[in-house]
Amino acid sequence: MAIERTYYTIDPEGKLQCMKCGVPLVKGKAKFMYLDNGFPVELPVCPVCGFVYVPEELALGKVASVERALEDK
């Protein structure tokens, strides 16, 4: 069982809203997948439609560095 890590914390809660459903995003379970590897993570998700939001700082930071590490595997 992979260890679950939180790469991102929603701070403050409620500042992000799903436009489609009109509800605030909440901390939810999501999964990153790349080159046949999967990583369980917690990200802001819409409790209604399940839209998973990847914030810019996460995409350009941790996600990019993990991508590079996997590419060189």
Partner: peptide, 15 residues
């Protein structure tokens, strides 16, 4: 106003 991208695919996970 801005744009960014990532190559990892992300999806919702149950359980």
């Amino acid at each position: 106003h801005g744009a960014y991208s990532h190559r990892m695919n992300v999806e919702r996970r149950q359980g």
